[in-house]
Design a protein around this nucleic acid. Structure first.
Lengths: 234, 234
DNA sequence: GCAAAAGTGTTATCACTACACCCATGG
DNA sequence: CCATGGGTGTAGTGATAACACTTTTGC
């Protein structure tokens, strides 16, 4: 059996929407595109899928090239395929979104791509349909994090409850009552209190917590209602 | 600007996972594949994406060819792209899932494809990775319908509350208390009681309801908790 | 000793679960 | 008149939201 005849073949790429959190704001890792067309315009990091590569492998390799990281949280967002989304030739793109701890020691941004963390409130225009991809990724992040304990992927392995609250507030652009917030997150049973405190952001210091990995894996897919009806999510 | 050089181009297809409900069971519309390889094996309906077609257009056209229907509920599930998923040559598939009213008058199954409605409990093995696609589609249907008023797409425009309950029970493979069920669905405010009754399934007859289209569109994306934590959904 | 952030408890409301009986009708 | 499925109400429980004061400590 040869090939399917009379059909058009297309380029297939992956693009990565990479979220990070610096303790205050939600950020996106963007690059300045290194080749024509749209050279030097802001862009998501991406790459063509190679003949023997799965999408996941391709996306992980893009992420690895750019950040040096492996094994981080990554999920397929959607396939984008408008016929004219890339003016050069028809290219379908499988978008992946990724959550990483912006301060982790292994993170080493490659110099090759002029990558920068950019606040979601200060996003420049992006090439092709990348702005649309970012919009969809943010929507999905908000949707999913309202129900699943997802945002921990953006924090270091030791974090305080006030830090966690700032993160949720940044993602949903709201404020929460800290008494209710801490009761809710502690009631999930996912957090283990540590003996030491973070003294950087207050004189008194705030206790560190770690995720209980067993429970985290077990409960990841349960509906946890981290945020109750934050607006009108999809 | 010419084309990107040195990259491999691939076939791109769409496959449709088509759900229907016959009043008792959840069903899938499958065809017997009409060409090699795997000719005459059970398969999802699909087709190659044409050079000037978006994925949505391609999927809608596949559905139209097969059922005569237009404008039905359709949503991208995921892109599938393992290098060897199609033994003939590398083909990526964008899977769409669709909900249709199995009894609607416009539904006209094309003879060309030997299409049949098959109960989810009696699924045959499917070609390629289609069984995996079905699994993922069912998971997504359950996930989404637990939170959003999605399953109405499987019913005729006039339906009774007992019919709706049977549908939810079929999707989640559980039984609900009918008092609690009707209170919950009525409390959404999405249903408008009609004056006439369905007398087919009982002597007393059950009142028909219709969706309030305004509220349906407005509330579709709100979190409605149609089903409270049915197991451990993703 | 004071400014700044951490930590904690109570009350009212609401949504959910479990559960049992009467109603309308066709045969 | 009876069998079948339709329709409704209540009480107990658990989760949520609103709300204010005390603790710690670096300066």
């Amino acid at each position: 059996m040869k090939r399917y005849s009379g059909q058009t073949r297309m380029l297939v790429a992956v693009d990565c929407i990479i979220f990070g959190f610096d303790g205050q704001e939600l950020k996106l890792l963007l690059i300045k595109r290194g080749f024509e067309p749209e050279k030097n315009k802001w862009s998501l990091m991406g790459g063509f899928v190679q003949p023997d590569e799965s999408f996941e492998t391709a996306a992980a390799s893009v992420l690895h090239q750019m950040t040096g990281l492996e094994g981080v949280y990554m999920e397929q967002l959607l396939a984008f395929g408008e016929p004219d989304r890339d003016p050069v030739e028809r290219t379908v793109s499988i978008a992946y979104f990724t959550l990483i701890d912006i301060n982790q020691s292994k993170l080493q941004l490659s110099d090759n791509y002029h990558a920068e963390w950019i606040s979601l409130h200060e996003l420049p225009g992006l090439i092709f349909d990348h702005s649309h991809m970012v919009e969809m990724a943010l929507e999905k992040l908000r949707y999913k994090a309202a129900i699943h304990p997802l945002l921990f992927e953006l924090l270091p392995s030791k974090f305080t409850i006030p830090q966690l609250q700032i993160l949720y507030e940044a993602v949903y652009d709201v404020t929460f009552d800290k008494r209710n917030f801490s009761r809710k997150v502690l009631s999930t049973g996912l957090l283990v209190k540590q003996k030491d405190k973070d003294k950087l952001s207050s004189k008194r210091g705030a206790f560190y917590y770690k995720l209980d990995k067993r429970k985290y894996n077990a409960k990841f897919n349960a509906f946890l209602n981290f945020v109750t009806d934050p607006g009108n999510l999809k």
